[in-house]
Simulated assay, not measured.
Amino acid sequence: MIGNYSLPAVSAFKPLLMCLLAAAISACSAPPKQPDDYEVSSASLPDVSHQAKPTPTRSGSVNRQSLVLASLEQGNHHPAIAALFHQAEQARQKHQWRKALKYLDQARQIQPRNAAVLYRQAWVNLRLGQASQAEQLLLRAKVFSSRDQNLTRRLDWLLADALDAQGKGKKAREARNRATR
């Protein structure tokens, strides 16, 4: 007997005390990063390189479709997104555009507000000749990229390509002007 309590009564509370102790300890640790916790910036976009011969637009100017993405998997991303970008890059290297788009669609399901995911989807859609879909993706990406001017410029360059491909020369020039400011 301890004080006025018998030993069996104290041991009945032992599981409850252990649970409280475990809860207190776990509350002290930082929660794991969630997909939306990763910062999206222009650094999370793939690099571009020039093709040997730039492609002229209908208006005669050179567009940025003559730029080739160096890799779909570049940047600092949530591990699930990075894995999907890697798979999309492997499909891109084999010119399996629909397969690459499938992986990027999965990435967008995880991070629907990630402008870098939307940028990649738009780029692949443009390669597939789906300029209207690319335009819609880029406009959505611009909503989520407003804090990063470099990211917004990259989106505007690709948007200009999508608009040019649809014969919207005036809007394409406006997008290019925004990109060069």
Rank of each mutant, 00 (worst) to 15 (best):
E89I: 01
L20A: 15
G169N: 10
P8G: 09
A131L: 06
Q130N: 15
Q166G: 01
Q51S: 14
D47F: 14
K14L: 15
V48W: 03
A122W: 00
Q121A: 06
A122C: 08
A165G: 03
D47K: 15
A83E: 07
C19V: 13
N114V: 09
T55G: 06
N4M: 14
S26Q: 13
A9M: 13
R98A: 08
S41Y: 03
N125C: 10
A141E: 01
A22D: 07
K94M: 12
N125G: 07
V40T: 07
A52S: 12
V143H: 12
N76C: 06
L7K: 15
A23Y: 12
K99W: 05
H77N: 10
R153M: 09
A30R: 15
F85T: 00
F144D: 03
R120E: 04
N4K: 15
A162C: 05
A179W: 01
P35N: 07
Q111R: 14
I2M: 14
S71Y: 03
H95S: 11
H78F: 10
V143C: 09
L104C: 05
L159P: 00
S132P: 02
K171E: 10
T180C: 07
I81E: 00
D47E: 12
G129Q: 12
E174A: 08
R120P: 01
R127A: 09
V48G: 02
V124M: 04
I25D: 08
S11R: 15
L138V: 06
Q90V: 09
F85K: 00
D164R: 01
K33S: 12
V124W: 00
A91Y: 02
Q149E: 11
L72I: 02
A27K: 14
G3R: 15
L138N: 01
D36F: 13
P112G: 09
P35R: 06
N177P: 02
G129S: 08
L138W: 02
S66I: 04
K142N: 05
A30E: 13
L21N: 11
A30D: 09
Q133T: 11
L45V: 04
P46N: 10
L45M: 10
Y5W: 14
M1C: 11
D105P: 03
E89A: 10
L45Q: 01
P54V: 04
L126A: 07
A179M: 04
Q109D: 09
D37T: 08
R64F: 07
A175Y: 00
Q87C: 04
P8H: 11
P46M: 05
R181M: 05
S42Y: 10
Q96G: 03
I81P: 00
D161P: 03
A24S: 14
T180S: 11
V40Q: 05
L126T: 01
A162G: 03
I25T: 10
A107S: 07
A30W: 11
K102R: 14
